[in-house]
């Protein structure tokens, strides 16, 4: 195991600023908010790390969201995210400037990158955290995360290695306010890259919103179960999803009935989802379904059986016949959301 680095002068909190085509992933701002609190608790600096090509314009944004310092590496090879050059750049910065904490968003990019970087550095990496605090006595980062599909929470420490690395779930840390005139320090670092080291070539990126295969990334899911009763009745759910810009989902019973194809199934043997709002309509709430959706921000249950277990996890519930409740909801959302002629 690489040498003990806990007491060798690693200082400061870093946040990797994830950007694609100059657009910053909101989780990076959330992490600057969380990182600010950690840095203040430790009495150290907060820095953002910005890698890319033509991204210098974002530096003021990183200051505005709370960073004291920005490390900026620009190179054409960093124009598209690719693991190898991004990992090398980040590893080199860490070795040179030695932060004690390094945070990344638990996005697909953040997880892809952090796993490589932690391995190069031989340090610990805690995945998908939902809470970060500092133990005032030891100054260690307490990293709390769900495991076992959300059934278990664990607090993880990285005692003897630096930096302490974590990826953090999007949308759990509050968005900090943006301070327009806040300025900080800029550290530009030049490194030589060559295209061959990237090992990959991005051929095409295809945007695909509202498709079932992206259920695990959907922000609003309108899911139906056996209680929907027929394929025709699923039209009611489709209309609701349409008004909300959401995606359809299904329990296994609804899939087995042939009302929706298998890729729409939520649950243990389907997809695990974590939308902002999950509508469970005519779904009883079997444990195999619950494990796939119980960490949704808001759960709305519509069921005519007031004793259905789904109501135990629901934020809001309506007891009633879905054939009346769902059209009423669609109509009301349409009234509220779609700007009418007057």
């Amino acid at each position: 195991m690489p040498a003990d680095t806990a007491n060798t002068g690693y200082r400061g909190v870093w946040v990797f600023i994830e950007q694609v085509g100059g657009e910053v992933a909101p989780v990076s701002w959330e992490l600057l908010g969380a990182g600010r609190q950690l840095a203040d608790a430790l009495g150290v600096e907060l820095a953002g790390v910005l890698l890319g090509q033509g991204v210098a314009g974002l530096v003021t944004e990183v200051w505005a969201y709370g960073a004291d310092k920005v490390y900026l590496v620009e190179d054409p090879v960093l124009g598209f995210y690719r693991t190898a050059p991004y990992a090398r750049a980040l590893v080199r910065l860490v070795k040179q400037y030695q932060p004690e904490i390094l945070l990344l968003g638990a996005t697909s990019l953040g997880r892809d990158l952090s796993g490589a970087v932690a391995t190069f550095l031989g340090t610990g990496l805690t995945a998908d955290c939902t809470s970060l605090t500092i133990d005032p006595e030891t100054r260690l980062l307490e990293q709390t995360r769900p495991a076992f599909g959300g059934n278990v929470m664990a607090t993880i420490l990285c005692r003897r290695h630096r930096p302490q690395m974590a990826t953090v779930r999007p949308r759990v840390m509050p968005m900090p306010s943006r301070q327009e005139d806040r300025r900080g320090e800029l550290v530009r670092v030049d490194m030589a890259f060559n295209e061959a080291e990237a090992r990959v070539e991005v051929i095409e990126v295809i945007e695909e919103k509202n498709k079932a295969v992206y259920l695990d990334r959907a922000e609003i899911i309108v899911a139906g179960g056996r209680g929907v009763g027929s394929k025709e009745n699923f039209r009611l759910l489709e209309e609701l999803a349409g008004v909300l810009g959401g995606t359809l989902g299904a329990s296994r019973a609804a899939v087995e009935a042939g009302w929706l194809p298998p890729e729409y199934q939520v649950g243990q043997t389907g997809t695990t989802v974590r939308p902002k709002v999950y509508f469970a309509i005519g779904i009883s709430g079997a444990v195999q379904h619950l494990v796939g959706m119980q960490t949704s921000d808001v759960i709305v249950a519509i069921n005519n059986d007031s004793q259905a277990p789904i109501f135990k996890v629901a934020t809001y519930g309506i007891v009633g016949d879905l054939r009346q409740v769902v059209p009423a909801l669609t109509a009301e959302f349409r009234r509220q959301l779609v700007p009418g002629p007057g």
Partner: peptide
Amino acid sequence: SPTSVRRIFAPPAR
């Protein structure tokens, strides 16, 4: 293993 599990607990009830 640089990481260690300090404690595990049940997730807060919704």
